[in-house]
Design a binder for these strands. Structure first.
Lengths: 91, 91
DNA sequence: ATTCTATTTAGACTTTATTCTAAATAGATG
DNA sequence: CATCTATTTAGAATAAAGTCTAAATAGAAT
């Protein structure tokens, strides 16, 4: 895993919104794009950043490209952040 | 807390390195700067970004400005990330 | 009060990111 | 195979981030 890539990917609000959408499950690039007022090319760019950071996994079916969360990478980020004391689970 | 600010702050490798240094405890801007091959002005810029994101807290003493980690904000980020399944603690 | 030390601010420059339009690809359908 | 649909790639334009030098601030020391 590469933290530079991962944090840069998480730094953009559009990409964070995409990740939240993907909690519902697998979605195609087109479906994702409909939620934003941007061209498909731009969405494709953001998806490529998320993919590069391994935050999402892609799969192809017919002429659709589906994206889904890659939970394991999130765990690694959580572990990295925990070193700063974010793991004190007192209220 | 503002996630845009926070993730943007974490996206830069210099700033992540500063945070790791601060695990050792409070350090002055000058001490932090010595660890990097950059001008004090640039370090000051990075510290301001970390401060804006509330990842660090500053305090003044004599003519030194000290920085230290703000653990509570890290916890909030961990919680945000946990929604993506980063909390499955199986090996 | 003048000077010294530590840090920040201002402004310019450079690099990196984001976005668009237009063209390219790739697979599906008629 | 010609065309349609979904997505990506290329290239240009704009915007944002990072870095520097020089100047400003603020407090400490003489």
């Amino acid at each position: 895993m590469s933290f530079p890539e991962t944090f840069k990917a998480l730094a953009d609000p559009v990409r964070r919104e995409i990740l939240i959408m993907l909690k519902q499950g697998k979605m195609s690039a087109g479906e994702i794009g409909q939620a934003f007022d941007m061209t498909g090319a731009t969405i494709s760019y953001h998806l490529s950043q998320l993919k590069k950071a391994k935050l999402v996994i892609e799969s192809k079916q017919k002429n659709f490209v589906y994206y889904e969360l890659n939970a394991s990478v999130f765990e690694e980020i959580v572990l990295w952040l925990a070193q700063f004391g974010g793991n004190n689970n007192e209220k």
